[in-house]
């Protein structure tokens, strides 16, 4: 599937939406408007957008604690997202989940996850459904480098491989599991090597190159749909912000952060689009304006929305 000009512009706009959404969340976190914690996706936008562009609406994703980008890339409603972050009744989870549990199962988003690696076996389960119901769908399973050292990573990739489950495992390697650097937590330098022991293809890709990610996921997804099994894709990228609200970032240098900021995935894609003359300066300004408006609308919607009533406190522990 080749992307046309409009597809590319949509992807750019989506990356920018994630960036601006997260900047607003950062602001709310520092003001205390958001009372819980939040894990920002700034710097890693290319992965979610490149990967989700490669799948269809009816396909599934599983996400992580750093999940806002995946939600937006999967087509989430910004109003409902912002409402959830503000703990409002109109949020995706009616204020019961918050940042780490945004889900919209009906549109294929099986949920963010507060446990590192927690979504990986769930993705396998969605893969079982697809296979048993012969749906020809695919599951994108996002997780960070930290999750690669969880036991469920091993159990899940092995199961997906022996059962040829239609899952694309996407590791967002931002080089730190909270403060623990990959060089401390892994003896191997290239995490994609892990794939070999499960008998599945392992690919390493520049996680700041949205088109390259798109291409790799297209290929992996088509393999999955053809019943040829899972793929492990490692996207090297970087989180610009701290792990969460309370991170003093003692484990990395300002210089390192600055180096990565120079490789901004959005600026890079913008330059590509300008060079190709798919975008003009005027158009980028228009897009910026539209994105900012959509974020402002989401904020307004969320702020005007009511908090959930205490009457809902004990509702929905069990399904009928």
């Amino acid at each position: 599937m080749t992307l046309n000009k409009n597809d590319l512009i949509r992807m750019y706009k989506q990356m920018l939406t994630i960036r601006r959404f997260e900047e607003k969340v950062a602001e709310f976190l520092s003001q205390g408007t958001i009372h819980g914690t939040g894990h920002l996706y700034i710097g890693e936008e290319a992965i979610a957008v490149g990967a989700c562009r490669a799948i269809e609406n009816e396909d599934y994703i599983t996400s992580t604690h750093r999940g806002h980008g995946h939600c937006i890339a999967k087509g989430a409603d910004l109003n409902k997202m912002m409402s959830e972050l503000l703990g409002k009744e109109t949020g995706y989870c009616r204020g019961k989940g918050g940042s780490m549990h945004i889900a919209d199962v009906e549109t294929g988003n099986l949920g963010a996850n507060g446990v590192v690696g927690g979504g990986i076996p769930i993705a396998c389960g969605a893969g079982i459904t697809i296979k048993m119901k012969k749906l020809k769908r695919v599951v994108l399973c996002f997780f960070g480098d930290g999750a690669v050292n969880q036991g469920v990573f091993h159990e899940s990739l092995n199961l997906a491989s022996v059962w040829d489950l239609p899952v694309v495992f996407i590791c967002e390697n931002n080089f730190y599991a909270m403060s623990t650097a990959t060089k401390i937590a892994f003896k191997i330098k290239d995490l994609s090597l892990r794939a070999a022991s499960y008998g599945m293809p392992g690919v390493k890709v520049d996680g700041n190159d949205v088109l390259k990610i798109y291409e790799e996921v297209i290929e992996a997804a088509s393999r999955a749909r053809e019943d040829k099994g899972p793929t492990f894709i490692v996207c090297d990228s970087y989180r610009w912000k701290g792990h969460s609200r309370s991170d003093a970032e003692r484990y990395r240098t300002k210089k390192e952060v600055m180096e990565w900021k120079k490789r901004c995935p959005i600026e890079r894609f913008k330059k590509y689009l300008l060079d190709k003359r798919y975008l003009t300066r005027e158009m980028t300004e228009q897009i910026e304006w539209e994105v900012n408006l959509s974020i402002q609308e989401a904020v307004d919607f969320a702020q005007k929305s009511p908090f959930p009533s205490l009457k809902t406190l004990e509702q929905d522990v069990y399904a009928n």
């Binding site: 769930i122 396998c124 389960g125 969605a126 459904t129 048993m132 899940s156």
Partner: peptide
């Protein structure tokens, strides 16, 4: 074998995959 599945010795993914398939329409 499609409906009576022998798994590897992997309890986490047995439970988690049951969950994931239940979430998407099966009754494991």
């Amino acid at each position: 074998p499609e409906r009576i599945k022998d798994t590897p010795l992997s309890e986490s993914v047995i439970v988690g995959a049951a969950l994931g398939s239940a979430l998407t329409g099966m009754r494991p």
